[in-house]
Design a protein around this nucleic acid. Structure first.
Length: 262
DNA sequence: AGTACCACCTGACGGC
DNA sequence: TGCCGTCAGGTGGTAC
């Protein structure tokens, strides 16, 4: 589920594999993933050019096309990047296929097609238009507290609101709340400054740790909730069944023992 | 402002 | 075996 740590991992992968390599071909294999551009336009923009920079903001990834626009990726729920040599290794839901002069390929694989690709001129303008809040990795404590203190609803929906903070989704909001011991439906208003500061620190630590582990739950510390976010999952601290509830239409997992409402 | 609900979309899974 | 409902969860739109 591409949230900030997953997208950051894609960015690092892209930097390692696809930067500064002359592009030979670019083919859109399914037009549904295109936002505001056409397949022929994308082809024209990419072929015989190269990527010279990679950036991330929240859950969005941007690849700079040298002397031209930015190629924007949003991964939706099932999007990912794959770099490979032989076409037989092409992922099964490849929607955009880029072929480099060196013979390797980069594919935007997106099974459910909830992802999007677009061309944009300016990242700042884009994030402004989307009204995205500060990136969760970059936001400082004061800004975090200020933004949270303006929220009236529940804490999980506040953490997932991209206009409040950009980058946290359903999975990682569960992890943050699990580690600070707060119920997903707790009203933000009921949290004091100390709660918010602890939450801020945990959020940063979780993002840094999971990026370091390349967003792979199998490599996460055994004290983490995420690997247990499944049917019959247990709290790694208390070894009891996790609770499953709906919060804003999303499934939230939490420990009924150490995440009780105030 | 916040929440509820729907749509987009595919594939895995459980029930019958 | 195979059909069907449900679920997964990011975003965006609408209704209340």
């Amino acid at each position: 589920m591409p949230e900030l740590p997953d997208v950051e991992t894609f960015k690092q992968y892209f930097q390692k594999t696809s930067l500064n390599q002359p592009i030979k071909k670019a083919d859109v294999e399914n037009k549904k993933i295109l936002a505001d551009t056409s397949g022929s336009n994308l082809k024209k923009e990419l072929e015989e050019k190269k990527f010279d920079e990679a950036k991330r903001y929240g859950k969005y990834f941007f690849a700079s096309i040298k002397n031209s626009s930015w190629l924007l990726f949003h991964f939706g729920m099932t999007g990912e990047l794959k770099y490979f040599k032989n076409l037989e290794d092409k992922p099964s839901h490849s929607r955009l296929l880029i072929t480099f002069e060196n013979g390797y390929h980069l594919s935007f694989d997106c099974q459910r097609m909830l992802g999007k690709i677009d061309l944009i001129q300016n990242i700042k303008e884009f994030t402004k238009k989307k009204e995205l809040g500060p990136d969760a990795l970059k936001i400082n404590l004061d800004e975090f507290k200020k933004r949270m203190q303006n929220k009236r609803g529940g804490i999980k929906s506040a953490l997932m609101d991209q206009k409040t903070i950009a980058g946290i989704g359903n999975t990682y909001s569960d992890e943050i709340l699990f580690q600070v011991g707060i119920h997903p439906k707790e009203k933000v208003k009921n949290l004091d400054e100390k709660n918010l500061e602890k939450m801020f620190n945990k959020m940063k630590k979780i993002l840094e740790t999971t990026i370091d582990k390349k967003a792979d739950p199998e490599k996460f510390p055994s004290s983490y909730l995420i690997p247990e976010r499944k049917k019959n999952g247990k709290c790694p601290i208390h070894n009891i069944d996790l609770q499953r509830i709906k919060v804003i239409g999303r499934t939230a997992y939490y420990c009924p023992k150490h995440q009780q409402k105030k």
